[in-house]
Amino acid sequence: MNLTLKIWRQKNNSDKGAFKEYKVEHISKDMSFLEMLDVLNEQLANKGEDPVHFDHDCREGICGMCSLYINGKPHGPEQTTTCQLHMRSFQDGEVVTIEPWRATAFPVLKDLVVNRSAFDRIIQAGGYVSVNTGGVPDANEIPIPKKIADEAFDSATCIGCGACVAACKNASAMLFVSAKVSQLALLPQGQVERKERVERMVSQMDAEGFGACSNTGACEAECPKGISVTNIARMNREYFSAVVTSDNI
């Protein structure tokens, strides 16, 4: 198939940037979306033009490095990561618009590459259980009901790609933050720091400049890992009860 690509090009963070149109031909439907971009880049490189920069690494849908806002949706038309999106989801002759994630907290570094270290800083604010290596109890001394373990897993499956932020009309990071808050709030290991954690993570989230939640559900609908907005409700609950009952003035 042949496609017209409208791609956001921006030399660096301070550049204004603009869309540029490209044509790619003889694209196989078995290609992944990123392989299609590889074809474009090989084409550009052969012509001596700067290739389109985009983030990607594992290309199997788990590292969360790939992004791209494709035809008005994060990770494109399917509920998966861009690297797992295949060209059979597109029509011959289609115009495909490719934009970077848009959020104040995710500044564009170049073309389609954005800086998502805000997510790292949120985890640094409390997304862990404070145990040092060694000196922990035997793994089976902490029995956890299967249902709880499974639910915690469902939250822990977040890949930190930022599609939730990209999809949200408010560029809110609630789904990402709540997934980690939920995982640790559900598990017995997370109880000790439960209140402190949610307070600190929410406050860091706000400091990074993410928006608030309007409960549109767009994040859940676009999350490649299907993380549910029930996590957001849990985080809200955790947060409100923490601020009311903790002794942090």
Binding site: T104, G211, A221
Partner: peptide, 16 residues
């Protein structure tokens, strides 16, 4: 303020 530059193409109707 959290998103000063919007998207050129948006298909938000498919997710919310």
């Amino acid at each position: 303020k959290a998103r000063p530059i919007g998207y050129q193409t948006s298909r938000a109707s498919t997710n919310s």
